[in-house]
Amino acid sequence: MMLNTRFEQSKETAWCPGCGNFGIMNALESVLNELELKPHEVVICSGIGQAAKMPQYINANGFNGLHGRALPPATGIKIANKNLKVIINSGEGDTYGEGGNHFIHTIRRNIDIAHFVHNNQIYGLTKGQASPTTDMRFVTEVQAGGVILEPLNPVALAITMGASFVARSFSGDRAHLKEMMKAAITHKGYALVDILQPCISFNKVNTFKFYKERVYHMKEDYDYANKAQAFERSLEWGDRIPIGIFYRTEKPSYMEKIHHLSDGEILADKKPDPMEAEKFMDDFR
């Protein structure tokens, strides 16, 4: 029997029963199979946190790196082997907090990576401190008087930074989530899907019910090519929370802008010969 011809999830995880991560893992597993990718062609990258354990539980290649640093290794992997499908699953603390700088600059690179951010508006693994997206006045052990920092709006930030694909979904809406994941994985360039997800242990405000009552699908006639409109819609947060593709545009990806990368040999496949570089000594003669 051939090993690993289909994606499967492991039965044991370190997640709490009822965690939103399960919905995200189920969706990812079936999307990868439906896209007919092969496990050895896929690398799932992550940083640290509960969401970042995803590469542990799906039988693809995995790079479970440092906290906040999911994006740079993913970038290095894609540049080294453009044929690998590179996907990131990490939390909002990892992505927007510890790794904020990489988030901004990966958008600028527009490299072919699908980035799935599990956004539960709380720190899970460190047990309940505010995350960059926690709403103001939310009380935690550290933020005992309530959060006084304004929450980061990842969708608005990505749109204004010029990301070529910006979407939001909800872990409790499997069909929608699968659709967003598929669109992101097949998008050329950097694709962000911010996934709203309840944390049943530490976030008693933004619960499954909270999101279920508020999220709504943007209408089919919504024009996601209109950046100004996308930005305006990204600011909607409260009684109603829009999900779907906010903004999508075609522009050259990082790979396409480096012709010897898009048209040339895969870096990892190169068999360099030291003698090839000998001519460069002329620079110093």
Binding site: R69, P72, G76, I77, A80, L267
Partner: peptide
């Protein structure tokens, strides 16, 4: 971190 990603992937 990029270097490590690229190295992991074979460069």
């Amino acid at each position: 971190n990029m270097v490590l990603g690229a190295s992991f992937a074979g460069a």
